[in-house]
Design a protein around this nucleic acid. Structure first.
Lengths: 147, 147
DNA sequence: CTTCGTGCAAAAAATTTGCATCCGT
DNA sequence: ACGGATGCAAATTTTTTGCACGAAG
């Protein structure tokens, strides 16, 4: 698990300042560990903590945090971009709830299996994505009610 | 491999008409099998075949084709949406070149392995994504030259 | 001739940027 | 005081929509 201090230290060491807006964004991210939030979500929630926060600031900071590997960015189901704190140090993947963005880390990485089976001379691999989508128990109940 | 006739039949059976714009878009997609193209790419290329083609038409048609499972949509590296003809009937995944969008199908599906190892009671899985990213032999050469 | 599809223009949504000012160190 | 960070407004980029006209079956 990552902690607040580590994150703040990482930022400082990279030459970034600890502004109130930045802190508010981190607050939001820490309050929603294991959940992907859209930029808009983060904007709205950050605003409740630091009212004058601006969308540009959010985007600029999210970009910074991604660069420093403090947060993780993905596109749930090819829609809008979502962000989540990187909570684990080791390489892992996610199960993601399409309803609420809740995530769960999974240790299994298909690449190991894959390497054993296939060797492709035409591609030099740089990275990969393995994501499972579904509904968490909570969203499942809500959905079954609707349909 | 999917063929042009099958696609046209699928469209007709679903009650869609075979317009010139639609044909031009299919031309482009068939000329770029195993490549992800952005909506913009498709727009530009379709325009050379049918000059008055409009962006709205492109988006509306891509949406239709996705719905009919004729094309596949993804976000290469969380950036813009890209589309590719679905060329294989069986379930499979992709290796995707970050340079040119070229893809290669891989038969390996990590889900089988995964199911054997992990059973998660908190999530009902609906679908998944497994994508490998890298550079194809061509783009690799170009990149090594640049940097 | 009926229904679906298209172009156009405009709106909406998502993201980025320039610049003057502000704030953390 | 210096340099990064922010707010604001405006520009871009991406995607969607309403509507009248045109075209496919």
């Amino acid at each position: 698990m990552i902690d607040r201090n580590t994150v703040e230290t990482t930022l400082k060491e990279a030459g970034y300042k600890l502004t109130n807006q930045r802190k508010a964004i981190l607050d939001v991210l820490f309050e929603h560990q294991n959940h992907f939030l859209t930029a808009d979500d983060i904007y709205l929630r950050t605003k409740t903590k630091y009212a004058q926060t601006n969308f540009s600031t959010i985007y600029r900071n999210l970009e910074t945090l991604v660069k420093l590997d403090i947060i993780h960015k993905t596109n749930i189901q090819d829609d809008a971009s979502s962000y989540e704190l990187v909570c684990h140090n080791s390489h892992h993947h996610h199960i993601i709830c399409k309803g609420c963005g809740k995530t769960e880390a999974i240790d299994f990485c298909p690449l190991e299996e894959f390497h054993g089976k296939i060797h492709d001379k035409n591609f030099t691999l740089t990275d990969h994505k393995f994501e499972l989508y579904g509904y968490c128990s909570k969203c499942q109940k809500q959905n079954s009610g609707k349909e």
